[in-house]
């Protein structure tokens, strides 16, 4: 572990300015990912900018949608009555994540920036293009059981580890980002993440100094009737092998709108518009779900040990849809 400086930012501007000034600086919220990453020598930061005093709190539900401050803790959002009632998929994704202790610490913004659990990334003795660009990707020929089948490249097949992001991508959530000049912009979460391509170390579209300040989720009937299902190696406290976030608006026995995203299978949270399109106008039956789910895996690129995810993704999706109706 390198020595590093620590500063507590009094304002968003102070935080973003400090970050922009030091390329080796990092924001620290709950710290549940960052400290692990630093202790494992995966990242070396010269400066930690504590953002916990910033006014980035608040969970408000209005007619147009839900707004969540980026520093809200996972547990507070997961148990918030408005979230539970109107956006169950978000609540369920949060409460299926990590452990109660971690959820009490980890912030919403930090959750969306968490690092992959790929074992090659997490151990600096291995080559890893995400950690050391150009060093190689042993996961392609190695232990890839937990890794991605969508959005992969010859450079990287690491899975995005966030459950929350899967739910948010399904519901077309947007991030509010603030830059050092104090200007804000809004980016759909689906566009926020970068596919690995040949630059897997670049994971998102944050500009220098930019900070996630809020998450907004549009209100919708399919958000109220939504569900998160996570399949994992043990009953709790494990990352997803496959997960599915689904939302349906069913009226008069017909699906009017559908939202579907998969977790544990993509290098980024994996929304599947083809499945959504196929569901609209159909009756919410298990047969129809199965036919639609088959479309989700058309582009799958499994490796030696994660072939099962092609099948499991479809089944998880079908089950999630069955459970939501």
């Amino acid at each position: 572990m390198n020595n590093f400086a620590y500063t507590q930012a009094a304002s968003t501007k102070e935080a973003t300015t400090a970050k922009e000034a030091d390329k080796q600086a990092a924001f620290i919220g709950g710290g549940t990912t960052l400290l692990d990453i630093m202790k494992s020598n995966i990242e070396q930061h010269t400066l930690l900018i504590d953002i916990n005093k910033l006014a980035l709190l608040g969970i408000t539900n209005a007619a147009e949608g839900l707004r969540i401050g980026a520093l809200e803790r996972m547990s507070d959002v997961g148990e918030h009555p408005q979230v539970v009632q109107n956006y169950p998929v978000i609540s369920q994704a949060l409460l299926a994540s990590a452990s109660p202790q971690l959820r009490n610490m980890a912030s919403m913004g930090g959750n969306l920036l968490q690092k992959t659990r790929c074992g090659y990334y997490r151990d600096t003795a291995f080559p890893c293009n995400k950690r050391v660009p150009g060093s190689g990707c042993p996961a392609q020929q190695g232990d890839n059981r937990n890794l991605a089948i969508f959005g992969t490249s010859p450079s990287c097949i690491a899975t995005n580890a966030s459950d929350l992001a899967v739910a948010l991508v399904a519901l077309e959530a947007k991030l509010t980002l603030e830059n050092p000049k104090g200007a804000t912009r809004t980016v759909p979460l689906a566009d926020f993440y970068k596919l690995p391509g040949s630059t897997p170390h670049l994971e998102n579209h944050l500009l220098p100094g930019e900070l996630i300040t809020a998450i907004t989720v549009p209100a919708a009937a399919h958000a109220r009737k939504s569900h998160y299902l996570k399949v994992r190696d043990r009953a709790s406290y494990a990352y997803a092998l496959v997960s599915a976030a689904v939302g349906l608006d069913v009226q008069g026995g017909t699906i009017r709108s559908a939202r579907v995203a998969l977790g544990g299978v993509g290098t980024v949270p994996w929304r599947v518009p083809a499945v959504e399109k196929a569901l609209v106008g159909k009756a919410p039956t298990e047969d129809n779900f199965r036919a639609a789910a088959a479309l989700a895996v058309r582009d799958a690129q499994p490796r030696e040990h994660n072939k099962f995810k092609v099948e499991l993704a479809q089944r998880t999706l079908v089950r999630a849809l069955v459970e939501v109706i």
Binding site: R122, A125, F126, P138, G142, D143, R234, A235, S236
Partner: peptide, 25 residues
């Protein structure tokens, strides 16, 4: 414990990757 076949090195040498039962199991 998973040993990479090419490197003969473990890929899950921590308690996030090496799953022991939790109460829910």
């Amino acid at each position: 414990t998973i040993r990479d076949q090419n490197f003969s090195r473990y890929t899950n040498a921590d308690l996030a990757g090496y799953h022991v039962p939790v109460n829910a199991d």
